[in-house]
Structure formats: structure tokens, C-alpha cells
């Protein structure tokens, strides 16, 4: 197992290196100009010479290979360069915000699991009944309703009922759990609905698959009670794909909360991502994409290791 794990971890390195190179190259062709934006977006008299001088100062006029060497040599030290907007280290900008995104992703996951398990199981056990149809419609609805719209409606609902919105500015869970939860609960619901639908649907089809396995069919499970017994037995198999989906969704959420963070004005890496695109802050954008990809690859690895721990065959296959 250890050998397998080490092998997999080592395999991560070339993948991430390739991501780094591709991201660098792709972003060099971005049209747009952050210096022009900084100096003239609010009007005013700024000459081309001043703009060029500022670009030179920020290293934007360096030849491509110089920029590339600087960027690649910084990576092993965790140095992602400076944000062209704030001139702070990109790693610091990301570190300041990733906690919030992580917490929101985690909270949404918990919420999703709590909702998804009963729904998915019931839907499978009562396949073809009204209950199944209702749950299916609910869950298909969950992946159809845009989460930003749901978020907008939630804010209006809160204003109409409670009347006040939770205070602005990230409050750490450890500093003030109550305020933190007030801030997080609405975004978590708006993400969690979609998330739970995805999980519930996967759970349903996995359980159905378990029920249709040959050995179960021979058990001639027709009654509900027998079905439950079988599902209990087969749950381990049914859970595997579900856990994978949960893991993948979680990894996606780490960088994919873009829209939700915008709706709820949360200072996470999703909002930072949109800001960096709008401002054309290439260094920051590059760092963010790399971070998100790393998070994703790591979560993927954990899922694989989890699988391997459960099923020894996998270790020897690859």
C-alpha cells in the first residue's frame, strides 16, 4: 500500500508541472491591460510613457523566457510571483482567502450528505413509485436551478423575513462560530441543493445496480424488507461511486464557488478568481488556476488511495 501511495504521489509531480507550463503559456495571450486599467480606468491624463514605465517596473516587459524562468524557478519554493494589482505575493493573496472557500465547500458537503442519503436510498428502494418520481424530480431540479438565482432568492427571503443580513467581513469559525454560521449557512444551502442532488442521484443508481446484481437477483428479493437487507450487504459497493462523486464535487467546489461567492459577497478564492480575470491580473490568475488544479489532483489522489485501501486489486493493477 505504501509503495502504491508513494508511486501515485510521485506521479502527481509531472501532471502539476505540465499544468503550470500550459497555464503560463495560455495566459500570455490574454488581451487586456492591467496597467492601463490601474492608471486610466477612472479617467485622467496618463501618458503612454508612464504606462510603459509601470509595465517595466512590474516585469511585464521582460522577454517571455525570462518571465518563464522566473515563474518556474519560483514554483518549488511556493513562490507564485506578485499580484499585479496589489503587488502582494500571490501565495499570500490566496492563503488569505482559501480558508473561507474550504469551509464553505466542507459545509456544503456536510449539508449535501445529510440530505442526499435518505433521498437517494428511498428513491432506490421505492423505485417506480410516486415517492421515487417526486425525489427524482426534486433532484433533477437541483441540478437545473442556477445556484446564483437560488442565492438571489435566498437573500431576498432573508431580507423579507429576518430583515438583517449577517455582518460583512469574514469571521473565523473559531473566533465566533455563531456569526460564522450565519454568514455561511445561506451560501451553503444555495450550493448544497445542487450538490445533494448530484449525490442522491448517484446513490440511487448505485443502489439500483447493487439490487440488480446477479447474486441478489438469485436471492429473489422482492419484498422491501429483503431489499433493505441486501442493500445493507451491498452498501459497501454502492457507496464507492457515491464517495467518489462526493470527493470530486468537493474538489470542484474548492475553486468552483465562483458564482456563489459573488452572489453572497464572500471573500473566497472564487471571487478572487473573477476579480483577477476582470482586472487581467495574470500572475494571480495563474497562481489561482494552479492552486485549484493542485487541490483537485490531491483530492483525486486521496480518493484513489481510499479505493486502493478498500480493494487490494487496484494496487496491483496499475
Amino acid at each position: 500500500m505504501l509503495k502504491y501511495a508513494i508511486k501515485r504521489i510521485l506521479l502527481m509531480i509531472p501532471t502539476l508541472l505540465a499544468v503550470a507550463v500550459i497555464v503560463f503559456l495560455v495566459l500570455r495571450v490574454v488581451p487586456g491591460d492591467i496597467v492601463e486599467l490601474k492608471l486610466t480606468a477612472e479617467g485622467g491624463e496618463v501618458s503612454l510613457e508612464q504606462i510603459e514605465a509601470e509595465k517595466t517596473r512590474l516585469g511585464l516587459n521582460d522577454p517571455l523566457h525570462v518571465q518563464f524562468i522566473k515563474y518556474m524557478s519560483g514554483l518549488p519554493r511556493g513562490d507564485l510571483g506578485i499580484s499585479l494589482w496589489t503587488e502582494e505575493p500571490v501565495s499570500a493573496e490566496i492563503a488569505a482567502r482559501i480558508g473561507l472557500s474550504f469551509e464553505l465547500a466542507l459545509l456544503s458537503t456536510i449539508l449535501a450528505v445529510i440530505i442526499a442519503f435518505p433521498l437517494g436510498t428511498l428513491s432506490a428502494l421505492f423505485r417506480g413509485t410516486i415517492l421515487d418520481y417526486i425525489i427524482r424530480i426534486l433532484t433533477i431540479g437541483g441540478i437545473a436551478v442556477p445556484s446564483f438565482w437560488l442565492g438571489m432568492l435566498l437573500i431576498m427571503l432573508v431580507l423579507a423575513t429576518i430583515g438583517t443580513l449577517p455582518p460583512l467581513g469574514t469571521v473565523s469559525l473559531f473566533a465566533d462560530p455563531l456569526v460564522n454560521l450565519q454568514q455561511m449557512i445561506w451560501p451553503a444551502i444555495s450550493v448544497g441543493y445542487r450538490y445533494s442532488s448530484v449525490v442522491a442521484r448517484m446513490l440511487r443508481s448505485s443502489i439500483l445496480e447493487v439490487l440488480s446484481e446477479d447474486y441478489i437477483r438469485t436471492a429473489r428479493a422482492k419484498g422491501l424488507y429483503e431489499k433493505i437487507v441486501i442493500v445493507k450487504h451491498g452498501m459497501r459497493n454502492a457507496l464507492l461511486p457515491t464517495v467518489t462523486v462526493i470527493g470530486l464535487e468537493f474538489a470542484f467546489l474548492l475553486g468552483g464557488l465562483v458564482v456563489t461567492e459573488s452572489v453572497f459577497n464572500l471573500n473566497g478564492i472564487g471571487k478572487l478568481f473573477v476579480d483577477s480575470v476582470v482586472r487581467n491580473d495574470l500572475n494571480l490568475l495563474q497562481g489561482l488556476v494552479l492552486t485549484v488544479a493542485t487541490a483537485f489532483v490531491v483530492v483525486n489522489l486521496l480518493i484513489d488511495l481510499f479505493y486502493a485501501a478498500l480493494d487490494p486489486r487496484i494496487r496491483y493493477q496499475s
Binding site: 500550459i22 495566459l27 490574454v30 480575470v277
Partner: peptide, 24 residues
């Protein structure tokens, strides 16, 4: 396969926004 793995290591929204940023 490796290229596919590479592209799959980005959330859809993230990849889409990067593409939007890159093309005029």
C-alpha cells in the same frame, strides 16, 4: 490519456473562465 487527465484537473467553471479571458 495524460492530456485528458490534465484538462480534467480544472473545475468546469474555472476552465471556462480562463478560456473566456484568453480569447478576444
Amino acid at each position: 490519456q495524460r492530456l485528458i487527465d490534465l484538462m480534467l484537473s480544472f473545475p468546469i467553471v474555472v476552465l471556462a473562465i480562463v478560456v473566456i479571458a484568453v480569447f478576444p
